[in-house]
Design a protein around this nucleic acid. Structure first.
Lengths: 110, 110
DNA sequence: TTGACATATTCCTATATGAGAATATATTGA
DNA sequence: TCAATATATTCTCATATAGGAATATGTCAA
């Protein structure tokens, strides 16, 4: 079997760095494809393809306005990723605490 | 160009669902490869390969004990993913609030 | 040293990718 | 209808994957 499709879920879709960039660009405001192309340094067809993937998993929404397509991030679709990472939060906090305690112990010793 | 390597960063490594399962299994306790194999329903070589990817990006740590290799999740390596998703948190909260307000407005109307 | 157990690696294959190039489709205004 | 603008799709290619099968490596105990 090959790797899961980029469109299989949000995890796969955001694995591509360009797509994360796009999500950030579109987080607070709608933008046309051309605007995204100008912001990033990749060709228009690539941007359209990335947008298609993001739309396929619900990470962006699109709306036509005249000749333009206006895209914006659908932040709620990022929530499942956040929730998954959050299940580890308690653990890394604990880890950081131990690192800090260790450092203080070393300090006290000298 | 092809897709970025699974080992290129944590985002790519956790795109594979099996690897997320493994990270959860190893979150709170060390386990041997065989234990992971028994828990999941995939072959031992596949588990070893997934572990190699996870180790490559620092998501797990390994330690030998006799014939066994004991793996555990390194939770701190998940933090960058959490931080990235967190940049959208304010936005989806706002989105949820608007949905709620809309529902209440509809309720009051009838 | 040998056998048994535990894990890792190699080889294979079907499949999907991301970028670039070229082209197609959609929308508007004249 | 036609030209111009905006976006999407198709094609090609080099590359990497995940799993299965087979095998290699590592470690211990006798």
């Amino acid at each position: 079997m090959a790797r899961a499709a980029t469109t299989s879920d949000a995890f796969n879709a955001v694995a591509e760095p360009r797509r994360r960039d796009i999500l950030s660009y579109l987080a607070t405001e709608e933008r046309s494809v051309t605007e995204i192309v100008d912001l990033m340094e990749i060709e228009q067809p690539s941007v359209s393809k990335h947008l298609k993937v993001l739309k396929g998993v619900g990470l962006v929404e699109a709306r036509r306005e005249g000749r333009q397509m206006l895209y914006k991030t659908n932040p709620i679709a990022i929530r499942p990723l956040h929730e998954w990472t959050r299940t580890f939060e308690r653990l890394w906090r604990h880890q950081l605490l131990r690192i800090k305690e260790q450092a203080e112990a070393n300090n006290a010793q000298k």
